[in-house]
Computed example of a mutant assay.
Amino acid sequence: MAPDIDDVARAAGVSTATVSRALRGLPNVRESTRARVRLAAIELGYAPSASAASLASGRTRTVGLLTPWFRRWFHASVTEGAERALRADGFDALLYSFELDDQFRRSRVDPFVLRRRVDGVLVVGMTLDPEEIATLAGLEVPLVFVGAGPPEQVTVGVDDDAAARTATRHLLALGHTRIGYLGGAQAERAPWSPPVLRLEGFRAELAAAGLETRPGWLVHGHFGMTGGRTACGGLLDAHPDVTAIFAASDEMAFGAMQAIRDRGLRVPEDVSVIGIDGHDLSELVGLTTVAQDAVEQGAAAAALVLEMLTGTPVGNRLTYPVSLIERSSTGIPPI
């Protein structure tokens, strides 16, 4: 009989969940433990994909991936990572996007298009209301959120509050006190969503420095370059004394940099700009950013779905680190 995951767990002296995490390359496993698990798997002749290959008959071997965009950096990167991980285990991804209107409103999630067509669901960079979450949970298949998810659901992402605090502290350390904030969706209300958490982190860090949040300096660019350019332009026209812009995404930061130059100003001599993401183009344009690994988050989320399909218990939250990357778009404020 071929060895299974229980055999590897016994040989390595760990739980089956740890074996699964170690062999799939997920974080929060000590390197010494990972090495012990891998050695046990090699000695036993265990293949980590065997758990997925031995799933009960009747599976579709397909995971649904729901996202409002496929061309924006975060969503595209997560999709890339998820598809790569799924293919490695012989699964396909069924992609669903949602058309947004001029007010960035989308159609509601329809669970019936997924029923009996997928073995699991990934929700990427999209805030769902409680009713939508309940309908997806009602499919009774593994459900994982990437980038934004309620605390009671399995979610992969970064600490958005901490990421915003890191960006704000960087500007404060340079001496900026007149900082404009370029946020995502103005209508967002879910307390666990990135737009809400990043704004809260910004406000909290200003308060810790003894500074007030000025409502007129908070604008929204809907996480896109065009929206960022328009919103930042309006902010600069109304408040020309702003010396720095914190954009809650790199794509909005790109738009902000263009809006600054549209007005004959320089980055960073006149206005500094910082973003969040680690977009592939951020190095090219010299953007200071708080970077995250979105591709790896997608791969980890797909791995969690596969773990859940085999009955492996998983935690509710997998948090990835962020890192400040300083480039030429930030500097000391003008005198």
Rank of each mutant, 00 (worst) to 15 (best):
4 D>F: 04
5 I>L: 11
8 V>I: 09
9 A>E: 06
11 A>N: 05
12 A>F: 10
18 T>H: 02
20 S>L: 01
22 A>N: 14
27 P>V: 09
27 P>E: 10
28 N>H: 15
29 V>Q: 02
36 R>F: 05
40 A>D: 03
47 A>Q: 11
48 P>L: 04
52 A>W: 03
52 A>P: 01
56 A>C: 02
56 A>I: 10
57 S>M: 06
57 S>T: 12
58 G>Q: 03
62 T>P: 01
66 L>E: 02
67 T>G: 04
68 P>G: 02
70 F>H: 06
71 R>I: 10
72 R>C: 01
79 T>V: 14
84 R>I: 07
86 L>D: 02
87 R>S: 14
88 A>I: 11
93 A>F: 04
95 L>C: 03
106 R>H: 11
115 R>K: 15
116 R>C: 00
119 D>R: 05
119 D>W: 05
132 E>P: 00
136 L>E: 03
138 G>Q: 11
140 E>S: 14
141 V>K: 09
151 P>Q: 14
154 V>I: 15
156 V>S: 04
157 G>E: 12
161 D>V: 15
174 L>Q: 07
176 H>D: 07
177 T>S: 14
181 Y>R: 10
184 G>N: 00
185 A>M: 09
188 E>T: 07
191 P>A: 06
198 R>F: 14
203 R>L: 11
204 A>I: 07
207 A>K: 10
213 T>I: 11
213 T>Q: 11
218 L>W: 01
227 G>L: 04
229 R>M: 09
235 L>I: 12
235 L>E: 02
238 A>E: 13
239 H>R: 14
240 P>K: 12
241 D>Y: 02
243 T>Q: 04
252 M>I: 13
256 A>L: 11
257 M>I: 15
261 R>L: 07
268 P>Y: 09
276 I>G: 03
278 G>Q: 10
285 V>K: 10
291 A>T: 15
297 Q>K: 08
298 G>S: 01
302 A>C: 07
308 M>C: 09
318 L>N: 02
320 Y>D: 08
322 V>Q: 05
324 L>V: 08
327 R>I: 06
328 S>E: 15
329 S>M: 01
330 T>F: 07
333 P>T: 08
335 I>Y: 03
